[in-house]
Design a protein around this nucleic acid. Sequence first.
DNA 1: CCTACCGATCGGTAGG
DNA 2: CCTACCGATCGGTAGG
Lengths: 198, 198
Amino acid sequence: MVETPRRREIEDVASDLFREHGYAATSVRDIARALDIQGASLYAHVASKEDVLWAIVDRAATRFEAAAAAADARAAADGPGDHVARLDALVRTHVAAIAEDVDAAGVFLGEWRSLGPDRRAVILERRDAYERRLRDLIADGMATGAFRMTDPAVATTFVLGALNAIAGWYHQDGRLSPDRIADHAAGFVVSALTDGPT
Amino acid sequence: MVETPRRREIEDVASDLFREHGYAATSVRDIARALDIQGASLYAHVASKEDVLWAIVDRAATRFEAAAAAADARAAADGPGDHVARLDALVRTHVAAIAEDVDAAGVFLGEWRSLGPDRRAVILERRDAYERRLRDLIADGMATGAFRMTDPAVATTFVLGALNAIAGWYHQDGRLSPDRIADHAAGFVVSALTDGPT
DNA sequence: CCTACCGATCGGTAGG
DNA sequence: CCTACCGATCGGTAGG
């Protein structure tokens, strides 16, 4: 299915509603009303309600994956062995990925439970892969002494928990720009994983 | 309404289902089936589906509030001016409050959107009050030099994000005991907010 | 706690 | 994109 402009409009409106009320509490009529069309008319553009959720979640997941790849590229230019720089880069691109589309990020992070079994499994595996990437970086940094020793798996969930919480409060017209938030996030995470000033 | 044993049983089963599938995606028949009774029979014990959600959320919120009070008492015994000790105590009681009933904590943290407007407002105000408490502690610690200088409001959301993520992965029969998780959480948070070893 | 039932709303289809 | 419609399921009530 091609991504027509109208189709994208539907997904954006749905992201907002799913984020605000949750997928199950949002009816296809709610989505249609926000677009000023009839509920049944939505099916001229989408095959099912779950397909809309999937499109949002899949696109958000892809954005996070691209962010991680971009962070790798950025850090590799600086120096491959610098774990602090690599973590700093990953945190910043992660925050940017959230801020780029908060609604979609929030839906991705909070509504994957509403996917059918197959898609749910796919998205969980992609989340796991992303998490493994961060965990490996943290574990490697501990092994080289860049980070203080602690449980890498637990530290990873703390880091992602702190970062993903941003999707719960960030607003485009808020006090802080995405870059400023990324500054704070990078400072927080690096400080949490290092023992003292370098 | 008094809290009969059966009523509590209903709430526990509902916590599990709401946590796994979300409030809106869980029908009263789902809850009844888990208790081996008919859907309509549930109404011999509860007035509405939302009342069940409210009971779970209200109890969990009360538990977090009690945890904060306990942390205050514990830290006051040590010494009132020690912000690191106060933060350490608050983190530990917060983690304990999550582990005490993960399902209810998860519902409290993730399903308050499903409450009606009035109850939603009440629970948001109680969450805000809890958050203010932590933010004030962090801001005071920055003013006295115990914590590194950064934005207290943002730091607070990072701390709560990291801690509340525990509700997403903690299991009673997991690798780590609540106390060990609390150790890691306290180490992570204190390290994030301090500049180096004391 | 059960059986029998209710109106409302759900996601989705047919046919234009 | 609309009107008209469908079967299924929803939360909840009546009466025992």
